[in-house]
């Protein structure tokens, strides 16, 4: 009886230890390395196989009759800890130009007080994949579109055209928060090419700079039911000296859809963000 009690208590406290680990990760988080655990990918339970359409290509969200969403919120495109890919660059290896490195360092020193996302502006590019409160990716084959839905922030959706259309000519492309996205499948990976960004958002949580020259190639796959793998190549020749890549995984949150969340509803933080 006593040993059963000890096992049950220990089991129940495992999440506490995990939580304590997250809290102690705070400095790493500020360096863009936040994740589930500090020393590498977390141990993950066995997963069901990737759900697939009748033609065999992967479903990136809940299959018919099921609920769930991608539990975005952690993960970074640089740093190797937690859910980040082991191939990621360290922040010291990101090929900044002098001006972009300086701007990034100012944003870090100011503790992100100027983050547009804290003012409920949309999380463009990679940030859509690490914004808290849920992510869903639904393909609409008959419309030849993929919709990427964000539960958090200002509750945005992004359209990826998979009908083979090209991007509009540059002189007809109005820069926006989400850009213009076209996609196609390469085996089990959805490849998305996006251009046409404005400069009004931070493309990552910790304020990596970019310009309107930003061109993204995102590669999204679902290696098993519970895992989404997100990889992105950052190609912005006005901000970085060469294209560079990074990514992270996102875990599946089963059995419920993401809750309603609109950052704009009662956002009282902006007036209090003073930084240091």
């Amino acid at each position: 009886m006593r040993s059963r009690f000890a096992i049950l208590v220990l089991f129940s406290l495992l999440p506490v230890f995990s939580f304590g680990q997250q809290r102690s990760d705070a400095p790493a988080a500020q360096a863009g390395q936040r994740g589930r655990g500090a020393r590498g990918p977390a141990q993950r339970p066995p997963s069901a196989p990737t759900p697939r359409y009748p033609d065999g290509h992967p479903m990136l969200s809940a299959p018919p009759g099921k609920l769930g969403y991608w539990d975005a919120g952690t993960g970074s495109i640089f740093g190797k800890n937690g859910n980040n890919l082991p191939t990621n660059l360290d922040i010291s290896e990101v090929p900044f130009m002098a001006w972009s490195r300086a701007l990034y360092e100012v944003r870090r020193a100011e503790q992100s007080k100027s983050d547009p996302h804290a003012r409920c502006l949309p999380p463009g590019g990679p940030r859509q994949f690490h914004t808290p409160y849920g992510l869903l990716i639904y393909e609409i084959p008959e419309a030849k579109r993929v919709l990427i839905l964000s539960g958090g922030g200002p509750h945005i959706w992004r359209i990826v055209y998979t009908d083979g259309r090209p991007h509009p000519p540059a002189d007809q492309l109005d820069p926006g928060f989400l850009g213009h996205s076209v996609g196609h499948w390469e085996g089990d990976t959805l490849v998305i090419d996006t251009v046409g960004f404005n400069e009004k958002f931070w493309m990552t949580r910790f304020g990596l700079p970019h310009t309107e020259a930003l061109h993204l190639i995102e590669r999204i796959s679902r290696p098993d039911y519970n895992t989404l793998k997100y990889e992105v190549t950052i190609d912005d020749p006005k901000t970085y000296t060469r294209p560079w890549s990074g990514g992270h995984i996102i875990n599946w949150h089963p059995d419920e859809d993401f809750p309603e969340y609109f950052c704009q509803d009662n956002n009282r933080d902006a007036e209090h963000l003073v930084g240091q």
């Binding site: 406290l13 983050d115 804290a118 808290p132 963000l273 003073v274």
Partner: peptide, 19 residues
């Protein structure tokens, strides 16, 4: 209960340290 409460994710749309 303790494990559940302390382990619940707490995520914000802004920097805690800035505020």
């Amino acid at each position: 209960i303790l494990g559940f409460v302390l382990a619940a994710p707490l995520l914000a749309h802004h920097s805690f340290a800035a505020e």
